[in-house]
Amino acid sequence: MLKGLAITPPVVGRISIGRIVERAGKRLPEKDDQFTLTTQVQQRGEWLLHPLNEQLRKATPGKLRAIPVRVLFNDPDLNLRADYSLFDRDTGRPVCVGDGQTCKRATDKGIETLPCVSPDGCTFGQQGGCKPYARLNVLIGDEDEMDSFLFRTSGFNSIRTLAARLHYFAAVSSNLLACLPLELKLRGKSTAQSYRTPIYYVDLSVRAGSTLEEALTQARELDARRKSAGFDQAALDAVARLGFASGAFEDSAEEQAAVAEEFYPSAEPTKSSSEPSPTETGSAARPTLREKLERQAVLLGGAAA
Rank of each mutant, 00 (worst) to 15 (best):
T102Y: 10
T102H: 09
C103W: 02
K104F: 13
R105E: 15
R105L: 13
R105M: 15
T107W: 13
T107N: 12
D108F: 10
D108M: 09
K109D: 14
K109S: 13
G110K: 04
I111P: 05
E112P: 07
T113Y: 04
L114P: 02
P115S: 01
C116N: 07
C116Y: 06
V117M: 03
V117H: 09
S118F: 07
S118A: 12
P119T: 08
P119S: 10
P119K: 10
G121P: 01
C122M: 03
C122F: 07
T123M: 03
T123L: 12
T123F: 11
F124L: 14
F124K: 06
G125C: 07
Q127N: 10
Q127V: 14
G129P: 03
K131I: 07
K131G: 12
K131D: 07
P132T: 14
P132G: 10
R135C: 03
R135Q: 14
L136M: 11
L136K: 07
N137K: 12
N137A: 13
V138F: 07
L139V: 12
G141A: 02
G141S: 03
D144L: 03
E145H: 10
E145W: 06
M146K: 14
D147W: 06
S148P: 09
F149E: 12
F149P: 09
L150F: 02
R152I: 08
S154H: 05
G155I: 04
N157F: 04
S158K: 09
R160T: 14
L162S: 06
R165C: 03
L166T: 07
L166V: 06
F169A: 01
F169G: 01
F169R: 01
A171V: 02
V172N: 01
V172F: 01
S174E: 15
S174P: 00
L176N: 04
L177K: 11
L177H: 08
A178P: 01
C179R: 13
C179F: 15
L180S: 06
L180C: 02
P181W: 00
L182C: 02
E183Q: 15
L184Y: 05
R187G: 03
R187D: 04
S190H: 00
S190F: 00
T191G: 00
T191Q: 00
Q193R: 00
Q193Y: 00
S194D: 01
Y195W: 05
R196F: 09
T197G: 00
I199W: 00
Y200L: 04
Y200W: 15
V202L: 04
D203R: 07
L204M: 04
L204R: 07
S205T: 15
S205Q: 12
R207I: 04
S210I: 06
L212G: 09
L212D: 06
E213T: 13
E214H: 03
A215R: 02
L216K: 13
L216D: 08
L216I: 10
Q218S: 13
A219N: 06
E221A: 13
L222E: 15
